[in-house]
Amino acid sequence: MSKKMHITLTVNGKEEEFLAEPRELLIYTLRERLNITGPHIGCETSHCGACTVTLNGKSVKSCTMFVAQADGAEVTTIEGIGGPDSLHPLQEAFKEHHGLQCGYCTPGMITRAVKLLEENPNPTEEEIRFGMAGNLCRCTGYQNIVKSILAAAAEMNAAKEAAE
């Protein structure tokens, strides 16, 4: 065991302070310390993306980040993307287009897709497949995930146009 560090994190808009060993992985901080269990653990070697969160504006695999590195950071998880009264269009679209089955990859998948659409609000199917390639799904074969993201993009663009 090594010396514990004082850590400050802003998670889904809420500031959290605690002492932790620097080797604590961010995914465990979220899941076990803060009880934010949306992000999951799939591969532990940064291949599957089930643990994806947004950290300081970047999509990050939280299994490959020490909490010490995240000290001072702003983190958004699936829980911060939309809830029962305010579903994000991506959450709606995944439900509508059967973009999930066992649900295990879904939080990381949607969290990544939110960022993808921020960066590219009007992606082609190919751009979605490339931009989502850091998230593995074992159930859906991706076809309906791609469909969900395309649908959400269309929905978000339409809403934006209507607002303008």
Binding site: K58, M65, M132
Partner: peptide, 9 residues
């Protein structure tokens, strides 16, 4: 190189 998440880091 790698995938989108890894390229951010």
């Amino acid at each position: 190189i790698a995938d989108p998440q890894v390229r951010y880091m």
